[in-house]
């Protein structure tokens, strides 16, 4: 699937460690359209997380260029601000802060930033309600099920209205029923709002939901295919 104006464009990206001894990424090119869900699969060490890190501005590529909505990453002045405004991360192990309630966890990305505290709070409440957690907002993560925790993490990823969602094994710690639910939620959000979503997964049942599956091996895209 190709489009005239891709949401995300990755051109010949390389990420080397140890003076080129380790090539976590070795010339990766990829385009993702608005509203598209791309799954990345591949063996351990093939560079899946590395690719997400580069797309998420957590790592600077050794070579190549990335564009989000036409803006080149090499021109980003403030990567933190860029992440805050454009990227929503979802992790395998949820990574919620255990002493904060569900609601507080959702507003964490806004802390220390601009905007009114009350406004962030009401947006967080709306998101949690939308994700079926209206009655759980005051709960600590320890009192929530795995599926509920991942929904809190999704709300946290969405709090700043990102353009793109990057998810590294988001269903890896969930049973299949919860995994299905989380996937449905994420798909619903990106289709509705025209976001791009790139998800790393080992699970064929999960990648089956994607619009496209990218197979990686040794830092390269080995094979591309629809589902």
């Amino acid at each position: 699937m190709t489009t005239a104006s891709p949401k995300l464009r990755i051109q010949e990206v390389a990420l080397h460690y140890d003076d080129g001894q380790t090539r976590a990424l070795d010339g990766v090119s990829l385009e993702v359209a608005p509203g598209e869900f791309v799954a990345i699969v591949g063996p351990s060490g093939s560079g899946k997380s590395s690719l997400l890190n580069v797309i998420g501005t957590l790592e600077q590529p050794t070579a190549g260029q990335v564009y989000l909505d036409g803006k080149a990453y090499s021109e980003i002045r403030d990567a933190s601000l860029f992440r805050r405004e454009n990227i929503g991360f979802v992790f395998q192990s949820f990574n919620l802060i255990p002493t904060l309630t569900a609601l507080e966890n959702v507003v964490v990305p806004t802390v220390g930033g601009s905007g009114r505290v009350a406004a962030h709070r009401s947006r967080a409440q709306a998101l949690l309600a939308q994700l079926g957690l209206g009655a759980r907002m005051g709960h600590l993560p320890g009192k929530l099920s795995g599926g509920e925790r991942q929904r809190v993490a999704i709300a946290r990823a969405l709090i700043n209205n990102p353009r793109m969602i990057l998810a590294d094994e988001p269903t890896g710690s969930l049973d299949s029923a919860n995994a299905e639910q989380v996937l449905d939620i994420l798909k619903g959000v990106i289709k509705q709002q025209g976001l791009a979503m790139i998800m790393v997964t080992h699970d064929a049942k999960v990648s089956a939901h994607a619009d496209r599956i990218i197979h990686m091996r040794d830092g390269r895209i080995e094979q591309e295919g629809g589902t």
Partner: peptide
């Protein structure tokens, strides 16, 4: 690391 990934400034 999570806070930084979520867009926290280093100053924050």
């Amino acid at each position: 690391g999570i806070l930084l990934a979520l867009g926290w400034q280093r100053a924050t």
